Simulated scan of single mutants.
Amino acid sequence: MIDFDNASFVKLNAWDGAQAHAELAEILVPGEQVYLAFKGIRDSVTFTDKRIVALNVQGMTGKKKDYTSLPYARIQAFSVETAGGLDRDTELELWFSGLGRVKLEFGSGVDIRGLGRLLADKTL
């Protein structure tokens, strides 16, 4: 499992939803749709209509993969931080019941407000 307490993902950038769906096809339930997807160097975070899936690719070959499913129903609070003048990166913090805080950092150009709207729609 990803150590959400001590590490955050490398800055995530937009990733093609079709590619994310193909990468996660084996774990998605029938009919589950990918809304938004973001990828770092090897790891990714995908927002579907049912949950958030964090994919942690491990090892030298990348054959070992950890899929962490984060249900929207377990989100107690979230915070979005927009980019500033010199700091072009954005952040999303989520607080999950039973897990604690998850922090995701995004590269410039990610619509963090749109991501906040998606989370509001799924959690409020």
Rank of each mutant, 00 (worst) to 15 (best):
A54W: 05
K122W: 03
G114Q: 00
A22Q: 10
F4W: 13
G31W: 10
V110C: 07
D5P: 10
E105T: 09
K63R: 12
Q76D: 08
K65I: 11
F47G: 01
N56D: 14
K103P: 01
H21T: 04
V53P: 01
D5G: 12
A73I: 15
T82K: 15
E32W: 09
E81I: 11
F96I: 14
A25K: 06
L104D: 07
L99Q: 11
D89A: 15
I27R: 08
G114W: 02
S108G: 13
V29A: 11
L86F: 14
Y67E: 10
T90W: 01
K39V: 00
V34F: 04
G107W: 10
L70F: 09
K11A: 05
A120D: 15
G116I: 01
R74A: 13
V102R: 09
D3M: 05
D43C: 00
L24I: 09
F78Q: 06
S79G: 05
E81F: 03
T48P: 00
G31S: 13
K50L: 02
V102M: 07
V80T: 10
T68W: 12
R117A: 08
N13K: 05
I27P: 10
L55P: 00
E105A: 09
A73K: 15
V80K: 08
G62F: 05
F106H: 03
T90G: 03
I2F: 12
R88C: 05
I41R: 01
Q76M: 15
E26R: 00
L124I: 01
T48L: 04
A77F: 15
D16R: 04
R113N: 14
G98D: 10
H21F: 12
G59Q: 08
R117W: 01
K103W: 07
R113K: 14
R117F: 10
Y35R: 06
G59F: 03
S108D: 09
L28W: 02
A7N: 09
A37G: 04
A20W: 00
E32H: 06
E23Y: 08
V80P: 00
L118Y: 05
E91I: 05
D5A: 14
E26T: 02
V110M: 08
Y72G: 11
I27F: 13
F96A: 13
A22C: 09
T48D: 00
Q33C: 03
D87S: 07
S97A: 15
D5N: 15
D5S: 14
G84E: 09
A120P: 07
L104C: 13
E91C: 02
G116P: 02
G98A: 15
D111C: 13
L99A: 12
A22T: 08
Q76L: 15
A25T: 07
D89V: 13
D66N: 14
F106P: 02
V53Q: 00
R117Y: 03
D16P: 04
I41E: 00
P30I: 01
D111Y: 09
V102F: 07
Y35K: 06
D121E: 12
I41F: 03
L12V: 09
L12G: 04
Q33P: 01
T123S: 05
L55K: 05
V34Y: 05
D111Q: 08
A37S: 14
L55M: 01
R51C: 14
G31T: 13
Q19N: 12
N6E: 04
I27C: 11
K39S: 02
V80A: 04
W15M: 14
V102D: 07
M60W: 10
G100F: 05
S79K: 14
V10K: 12
P71C: 11
G109K: 11
T61H: 10
